[in-house]
Amino acid sequence: KRYRAVYDYSAADEDEVSFQDGDTIVNVQQIDDGWMYGTVERTGDTGMLPANYVEAI
């Protein structure tokens, strides 16, 4: 699945990823209600991200 960031996010922990509004997130997997795991296409960084900061595309 592919998602697009709708807000900027700065990683708060080493297992999270930072991204900017408009970034595409690929290979996304749902972890639980609030978190997903995926790769930021622009940077190649992979990690956890907050589900409410992205939307499906």
Score class of each variant (00 low, 15 high):
5 A>Y: 00
15 D>Q: 13
39 T>L: 06
27 N>H: 09
33 D>P: 10
38 G>L: 03
52 N>A: 14
43 T>D: 02
32 D>A: 13
45 D>P: 01
12 A>N: 13
22 G>W: 04
42 R>E: 06
8 D>V: 07
37 Y>F: 12
35 W>V: 05
1 K>G: 12
9 Y>T: 00
22 G>N: 06
4 R>F: 06
37 Y>P: 02
45 D>T: 08
34 G>T: 14
46 T>V: 09
24 T>Q: 08
3 Y>W: 09
48 M>G: 04
20 Q>T: 10
36 M>N: 04
32 D>H: 12
28 V>Y: 04
55 E>I: 14
23 D>Q: 01
37 Y>W: 14
20 Q>M: 13
56 A>S: 10
36 M>Y: 13
39 T>S: 05
46 T>Q: 09
35 W>E: 01
23 D>P: 00
56 A>Y: 12
35 W>S: 03
26 V>C: 10
33 D>I: 10
15 D>C: 15
5 A>G: 05
24 T>S: 09
47 G>V: 01
43 T>I: 02
21 D>I: 15
8 D>A: 14
8 D>H: 10
37 Y>T: 08
10 S>L: 13
52 N>Q: 13
30 Q>F: 15
41 E>S: 07
39 T>F: 04
42 R>D: 04
55 E>W: 07
55 E>R: 12
7 Y>H: 13
54 V>P: 00
4 R>H: 06
42 R>Y: 04
55 E>N: 07
25 I>M: 06
3 Y>R: 03
44 G>S: 05
38 G>W: 01
56 A>K: 10
27 N>G: 09
41 E>A: 08
46 T>R: 12
31 I>R: 11
2 R>T: 12
15 D>M: 13
33 D>T: 10
26 V>M: 09
23 D>Y: 03
15 D>L: 13
39 T>E: 07
45 D>M: 13
31 I>T: 07
17 V>A: 05
29 Q>W: 14
44 G>I: 02
15 D>F: 14
40 V>C: 04
17 V>W: 01
56 A>L: 15
18 S>V: 02
25 I>S: 03
20 Q>W: 11
50 P>A: 05
53 Y>G: 08
56 A>R: 10
24 T>F: 14
23 D>L: 03
26 V>T: 10
37 Y>R: 11
1 K>Q: 12
11 A>R: 07
22 G>T: 05
18 S>I: 02
19 F>R: 00
40 V>Y: 01
14 E>Q: 11
43 T>W: 02
28 V>M: 06
26 V>H: 07
47 G>C: 03
6 V>K: 13
49 L>M: 09
16 E>H: 12
39 T>K: 08
7 Y>S: 13
47 G>P: 01
8 D>R: 09
38 G>R: 00
14 E>A: 12
55 E>Q: 12
52 N>T: 11
5 A>S: 04
34 G>F: 15
53 Y>S: 11
23 D>F: 03
19 F>I: 05
2 R>S: 09
45 D>H: 12
12 A>T: 12
48 M>C: 11
15 D>T: 15
15 D>R: 15
55 E>T: 12
10 S>W: 13
57 I>N: 05
23 D>G: 00
5 A>W: 02
35 W>F: 06
10 S>H: 13
39 T>D: 02
32 D>V: 13
42 R>K: 07
6 V>H: 07
49 L>Y: 11
4 R>W: 06
17 V>C: 06
10 S>F: 13
16 E>T: 07
40 V>G: 01
43 T>Y: 02
10 S>C: 14
